[in-house]
């Protein structure tokens, strides 16, 4: 059976592209998996992963980059905050927390978005000062 006649060239290119994407994703996942497997004995990420990520952990210097469209869940994740820290600090009673945007928090509290954002940023600065 002659396979070369049956398989069209564009199928071969598709298979090569899919294989390359899967291989790249696999390598990335493996590296991330190895890192994530050691939460209590954190290891330094390899240099190439750091370069690939292209970002440093969010610190107090990144507080001005917080925007009203961000959710509290995302802000907690970005700054590695304890899940209830912002809720208790800002006295948020809405049941949707942390799946609540800063803009929604402003609307609920009858605040302007800028005022709500300033409150969140102050709470973040206070957290880093405590640390």
């Amino acid at each position: 059976m002659n396979f070369s006649k049956k398989i069209k060239p564009h199928i071969v290119v598709l298979l090569v592209v899919v294989a390359a994407v899967l291989l790249a994703a696999g390598v990335l996942f493996f590296a991330e998996y190895r890192y994530a497997r050691q939460p209590y004995h954190p290891v330094e990420k390899p240099a190439w992963i750091k370069a690939l990520h292209g970002h440093r952990p969010a610190t107090v210097n990144d507080v001005p980059s917080v925007r009203a469209w961000m959710t509290f869940d995302y802000v907690d994740h970005l700054f590695a905050l304890p899940p209830q820290y912002l809720q208790s600090k800002l006295k948020i009673t809405d049941s949707r927390y942390p799946r609540l945007t800063i803009a929604s928090y402003a609307a609920i509290g009858h605040l302007s978005q800028a005022a709500a954002l300033a409150e969140v940023q102050d709470a973040l600065r206070a957290y880093f000062t405590q640390q």
């Binding site: 564009h10 199928i11 290119v13 598709l14 592209v17 899919v18 994407v21 690939l52 990520h53 292209g54 970002h55 440093r56 969010a58 990144d62 980059s65 925007r67 970005l78």
Partner: peptide, 27 residues
């Protein structure tokens, strides 16, 4: 569908990779 998938994988992949590299600075 072949060229559509190929084009989508490359074009979307490029933009996602740029965002991945930029990280916090994407804005």
């Amino acid at each position: 569908i072949f060229y559509d998938l190929l084009g989508n994988i490359v074009s979307i992949g490029i933009v996602l990779c740029v965002g991945y590299f930029l990280g916090t600075y994407w804005q």
